Computed example of a mutant assay.
Amino acid sequence: MLTFEDCVGLCDLDEDEIKAIAEHEHVPEIVALELAQYLIRLPDGTIAIKRMIIEDIQHARESNNPDHAKLLQNVLKHFIASHPDFESYKS
């Protein structure tokens, strides 16, 4: 049987990126992992994932949670750096 950690190892995103998707979609992390792996393969999937993380950052700021917003900003930076197709989308 595969563990969550095994599945993360097979995914094109890291655990923090998966957690951000789980937070955004209000789903368990294993479901977010499946969604992430599906999205990352779509032509505009990286843009969709980036948008989710940005929305999580905005929500954290609106909820007066600057520590979580900072953590998510680091997740976003890592995600962009890990996906070179973002060179033209950096913000």
Rank of each mutant, 00 (worst) to 15 (best):
F4I: 00
L71P: 04
V27G: 00
A20E: 09
K19E: 11
S82M: 07
A32C: 00
R41D: 07
I30D: 13
D14S: 09
R51F: 03
K19S: 09
F86I: 04
I49G: 03
H68V: 12
H68S: 07
I21Q: 13
L72F: 09
A32G: 00
T46Y: 15
F86N: 12
R41Q: 08
F4G: 00
A48K: 12
D67P: 01
K90S: 07
H59D: 09
V75F: 06
I47G: 08
Q58L: 07
Y38L: 04
I47A: 10
D14Y: 08
L39G: 00
E29R: 00
I21R: 10
S88L: 12
I30A: 04
D12C: 06
A60S: 15
E34K: 13
D56K: 11
E15I: 08
R51C: 03
Q58F: 06
E34D: 08
V8L: 00
R41F: 05
L71I: 13
Q58E: 10
L10Q: 13
D16H: 09
L2G: 11
A60I: 12
L71T: 15
E5K: 13
L39V: 01
A60G: 11
M52C: 05
S63A: 15
A60N: 10
A36E: 04
R61W: 09
A20L: 04
E25Y: 07
N74E: 14
E55Q: 14
H26E: 04
P84G: 12
Y38V: 00
L2W: 14
A32R: 01
D67K: 10
H59N: 09
E23W: 03
D12I: 02
E87S: 06
E23N: 04
I47R: 10
I53D: 03
A22L: 11
V31Y: 06
A69N: 11
A22E: 14
D12K: 15
E23L: 05
L76M: 03
H83F: 01
L35R: 13
S91K: 07
E55K: 10
D67Y: 11
L33W: 05
L2A: 14
D44P: 03
L2I: 13
I80P: 03
P84N: 10
V31G: 00
V27C: 04
Q58V: 08
S63P: 10
L76Q: 02
A22M: 13
K50I: 05
